[in-house]
């Protein structure tokens, strides 16, 4: 797993998720503070709203949503974070390389 640091889930442009898959990532985790506990007051609400739309759109397009995990883990939940990463990496490993992504997205992202 490789980590990309952003200040807040609110900063995440979901294009980044697609770019990561396009670059060959087999799975992506989007994670930040729990709703109501945002360090920046409300950034994670905006992220959640965009995520709902993004998720729907990806499903329609036929992207395998087992590849993208959105989960809230606070900075005080080290054990939970470790568990989440282990679960997701195990799942993604079981799914194998995500070679279909390029076919699904087609040439649109190139």
């Amino acid at each position: 797993m490789r980590v990309l640091r952003v200040p807040c889930t609110g900063r995440i442009d979901y294009m980044m998720v697609l770019k990561a898959l396009h670059k060959g990532a087999d799975g992506v985790i989007v994670s930040g503070c729990h709703p109501n506990d945002c360090h920046y007051t409300s950034g994670n609400y905006h992220a959640r709203r965009r995520w709902m739309v993004f998720k729907k759109m990806m499903e329609v397009m036929g992207v395998d949503m087992r590849r993208i995990t959105f989960s809230w883990v606070s900075a005080a939940e080290g054990a939970r974070w470790a568990q989440l990463v282990n679960e997701v990496t195990d799942q993604v490993r079981a799914l194998g390389p995500y070679t279909e992504f390029r076919q699904v997205i087609g040439a649109g992202i190139e």
């Binding site: 200040p7 900063r11 950034g43």
Partner: peptide, 16 residues
């Protein structure tokens, strides 16, 4: 510096 506006901007006019 949360960057929520950056992700929201439709014309990518804002940057963090």
């Amino acid at each position: 510096g949360c960057g929520t506006c950056v992700a929201t901007c439709r014309t990518k006019a804002i940057d963090l």
